[in-house]
């Protein structure tokens, strides 16, 4: 029973689409996921995110392809970073540089 997907308000608008059966298994969160979860809370506290709509808007702005490819907290990380860049708190260059450093640390076995 195909469902007309026209008019979906964005990649997040899933209600009524066809899908696989639900996998009810439990997943423990990785440490970085716990960190991203807490980071968004701290961003609310510091009024960087003024409303839940701002975190959501940043997730929806990823577009359908990226939205579907990313895991849940990857989307949150992407939206949080975008917001901080837009607010001028960090630059994309700083983020890129730090990502390279973290990769190096990983290679050094730190």
């Amino acid at each position: 029973m195909p469902h007309d997907t026209q008019g979906r308000i964005g990649p997040q608008d899933l209600g009524g689409l066809d899908g696989d059966s639900v996998d009810p298994s439990e997943h423990d969160l990785a440490q970085w996921e716990r960190m991203v979860d807490a980071m968004t809370r701290l961003m609310y506290r510091e009024k960087i995110f003024g409303d839940a709509a701002q975190l959501r808007e940043g997730i929806e702005a990823l577009g359908p392809d990226v939205y579907q490819r990313l895991s849940y907290f990857e989307r949150w990380a992407a939206s949080s970073a975008r917001k901080c860049v837009m607010e001028g708190l960090v630059t994309q260059e700083e983020l890129d540089e730090r990502i390279a450093q973290i990769r190096e640390r990983g290679r050094d076995g730190a």
Partner: peptide, 11 residues
Amino acid sequence: EPRHHRTPAYV
């Protein structure tokens, strides 16, 4: 509505 909103298509 081109902006972010919370009214899903199915309703």
